[in-house]
């Protein structure tokens, strides 16, 4: 900036190029995967199947749930924590949406609000256990994962609760089925729109707010942050609330797309969310990372999944490929210029 001298500027300039390469590795990765996807896309009657509008629709829709969760996960990881419970909370929220509307005859708005509150409260309790009582986030949320699954099983009676639409008793309001639809001339799936809104809000929030400075500071050096007057405990608790709330939102979207809330929903999703965050360049040690990266990471995983699926790659091989991509992305982190 204005303070730099000319000499250091050229040096810094060179370093900037390398640094920005790394800062946006997920974006470059995304562009690369996108190009690869286009090049290697299977063709049918000369048409690139990957670029088929339906297919792109499918990709962004499939990414939305993981993406929404991954945004929340980014906050937790930025403070140096982890949240393993988001997949189970998604299941709990999906069950909650279904049961509240189908069995308890709640309206859409009421059901959504209640489920979101459940997610936030769940995050709050985990945050308190982790930040106030000093139990490691990994352990707290591992336990939270079990608790959320257990609650979901109890609430649903151990079975998926199908959502039928209509005005009668035992039916969910038709509005809720919008979650499975598209808007803007049938081009944008509603879940993708929700993901986009969540991501943009999170990106702007993380860039401009004082709160986000505290988030980064805690991840960078928690002790220093505390001594600098950062309300560490409060920030950590809020961060877990965000993750819980967004996982619940993803659960609502999940229920809307599949017309069912099952206690087994979202099984293993937490790992996909973490993968998206890590591929997006956020450090698991905390203090470094962006939601932009996470969005790119989630899209990258989605495009990869789609491409492998379109090619009919053996499902077992697909797992190998995805594992490799995560390792490569994490390996690139190690090349990041250190200070």
């Amino acid at each position: 900036m204005s303070l730099s001298t000319q000499d250091t500027e050229t040096k810094a300039g060179r370093r900037d190029v390398v640094a920005s390469l790394f800062r946006f590795q997920s974006l470059f990765g995304l562009v690369a995967v996108f190009l690869v996807a286009v090049i290697f896309s299977p063709r049918h009657d000369g048409e690139l199947l990957f670029l088929n509008s339906d297919n792109l629709f499918n990709v962004v829709r499939a990414v939305s749930e993981i993406g929404i969760m991954a945004v929340g996960m980014t906050f937790v990881i930025l403070v140096g924590g982890i949240d393993l419970s988001v997949g189970a909370v998604l299941g709990l929220a999906a069950v909650g949406s279904a049961v509240l509307m189908v069995e308890s005859d709640f309206g859409v708005a009421a059901a959504v609000v209640i489920v979101l509150v459940i997610g936030v409260v769940f995050g709050f309790l985990q945050g308190v256990a982790s930040a106030v009582f000093g139990i490691q986030a990994f352990i707290v949320t591992l336990a939270g994962m079990q608790v959320a699954r257990g609650l979901a099983r109890m609430w649903s009676g151990g079975q998926g609760v199908p959502i039928a639409y209509g005005d009668g008793p035992g039916q969910a309001p038709v509005t809720f089925s919008l979650l499975g639809e598209r808007t803007f001339n049938g081009l944008v799936p509603i879940p993708a729109l929700i993901f986009a809104v969540v991501a943009v809000v999170a990106i702007v929030f993380l860039r401009t707010s004082a709160f986000s400075r505290h988030v980064y500071a805690i991840g960078g050096n928690e002790k220093a942050a505390r001594l600098s007057g950062v309300p560490v405990t409060r920030v950590k608790v809020i961060v877990f609330c965000i993750a819980g709330g967004l996982a619940a939102l993803a659960g609502i979207v999940h229920a809307g797309q599949l017309n069912q809330g099952s206690p087994n929903d979202g099984f293993g999703y937490e790992l996909d969310a973490i993968a998206a965050v890590v591929i997006g360049g956020t450090s698991l040690m905390g203090g470094h990372g962006t939601v932009t990266g996470t969005v790119a990471g989630a899209l990258l995983l989605g495009v990869l999944n789609n491409l492998l699926g379109l090619h009919g790659v053996d499902p077992n091989v697909q797992l190998l490929v995805k594992g490799l991509v995560i390792v490569v992305a994490a390996g690139l982190q190690r090349l990041r210029p250190t200070t």
Binding site: A210, A217, G220, N221, L227, S228
Partner: peptide, 24 residues
Amino acid sequence: RIAGLALDHSVLANTVLSIVDRIA
């Protein structure tokens, strides 16, 4: 190093940390 600074964060972020919510 242990209690004062987040060493890999910018000078700017470290400097204003204590007042960032006051000036917001």
